[in-house]
Amino acid sequence: KKVTINGVEIKFNNPEEAVKFALELAKRLNLRIEFHGDQIKIE
């Protein structure tokens, strides 16, 4: 399963991993996060 985070394609074994990764990243950098299907936007 491929997920695009800020235009960067990252391959994950499952979608939950991708979501956890994105949330952790957003929390660490104190950023806002948006989900659009397989696209995750962090700003």
Rank of each mutant, 00 (worst) to 15 (best):
E17D: 12
N30K: 09
V8S: 03
H36I: 13
F12Y: 03
K11G: 07
L25Y: 07
F35P: 00
E17P: 03
E9G: 05
A26S: 06
V8N: 03
D38F: 11
H36R: 06
E16G: 11
I33E: 00
N6I: 12
G7Y: 09
K1M: 15
N6W: 14
L31D: 00
L29D: 02
E34M: 08
G7M: 10
E24Q: 08
A18Q: 03
K1N: 10
R32T: 11
E34R: 07
T4P: 04
F35G: 02
G7K: 07
K2Q: 07
N14G: 06
F35C: 14
Q39P: 01
K41C: 14
R32D: 04
A26E: 02
E34N: 06
A18S: 03
R32Y: 10
E17C: 15
K20V: 04
P15F: 15
N6L: 14
L29E: 05
I5Y: 09
H36N: 11
V19E: 05
A22M: 13
R32G: 04
I40L: 06
R28P: 01
L23N: 06
G7Q: 04
H36L: 12
K41Y: 14
I10D: 01
I10H: 07
L31T: 03
F12K: 00
T4F: 14
R28Q: 09
Q39I: 14
I42V: 07
V19Y: 13
F12S: 02
E17R: 04
K11H: 14
E16W: 14
E9N: 05
F21N: 03
K11N: 14
E16Q: 10
R32E: 04
N14A: 07
K20I: 09
N14I: 07
L23T: 10
A18L: 13
N13L: 13
N13D: 12
L25R: 00
I42M: 05
N30T: 04
K1G: 10
V8M: 10
K1E: 05
K1A: 12
K41E: 04
K1H: 14
K1F: 15
R28E: 10
P15E: 10
K2C: 15
A22H: 01
K27N: 07
V19I: 14
T4H: 08
P15M: 14
E17V: 07
K20H: 05
K11L: 14
N6P: 02
K41A: 06
I40M: 04
V8W: 13
I40F: 02
R28V: 09
I33F: 03
Q39C: 14
E17I: 09
A22N: 00
R32W: 12
P15L: 15
K41W: 14
F35I: 11
L25Q: 01
R28C: 15
R28K: 08
A22I: 15
L31E: 01
E43S: 14
K27I: 07
V3Y: 04
L23P: 00
I5C: 15
D38R: 02
R32H: 09
K11Y: 15
F21Y: 09
K20W: 15
R32I: 12
K41H: 08
